[in-house]
Amino acid sequence: CCQVSKKTGNQIVSHLLLVEPDKIFAMADPTTSDTDDKVLTTLCDLADRELVVLISWAKHIPGFSTLSLGDQMGLLQSAWMEVLILGVVFRSLPYDEGLVYADDLIMEREQCRTVGLLDLYCTLLQLIAKYRKLQLDKEEFVTLKAMALANSDSMNIENIEAIQNLQDILHEALQEYEKNRHLEDPHRGGKLLMTLPLLRQTANKAVQCFRRIMAEGRVTMHKLFLEMLEAKV
């Protein structure tokens, strides 16, 4: 951890790098043919498994586990899609027009159109373009993910002060990292924070898309994914 800290110049950022989860693969069922519904089923199954990892990751954010169980639930229920979207966005940065849901599930415009996710695809490309222009690095990515969770604006928070404390700690970590690693642009931290409205907008759109798919009953969704989609109403 100390070696990583020397590199990032901030202990929280180094810790977030260390607790970053391993890659998850989509692992589409090889025994069935590739229909639109199969692609959506694979995507929903991937999201369900990512959610399990995300909940476990959240517990490793410094201070998160000291919040009340109700507040932990409130933050996760509000911000889970923003955290998942940030992951897709970061993985997609090296690709021109593909969304890297997983290394084995890269979706391009035409496929997104045929499964009914073109609108979401376009919004995601806009968000990816913003981060590509900034050349978002991994340290900033892990810090922004934690900030998205802490800044979820949940309506069901019991201890607002504790959440504010968590936000302040993450904000300071980002500022310190930028001061140490991106001296060339004193506005970089602000620029990163200014991407958060589009992230929320994109996450809301994604939730709407998957709620529509859920209502259509076209694909089987696992219980945790359903539970989190329903919590976002």
Binding site: K59, H60, I61, S65, E227
Partner: peptide, 20 residues
Amino acid sequence: KEKHKILHRLLQDSTSPVDL
């Protein structure tokens, strides 16, 4: 909490929380 029982259960699973 009953409505969100999987999230509730996963959060209660033992891990190593990190203090501030």
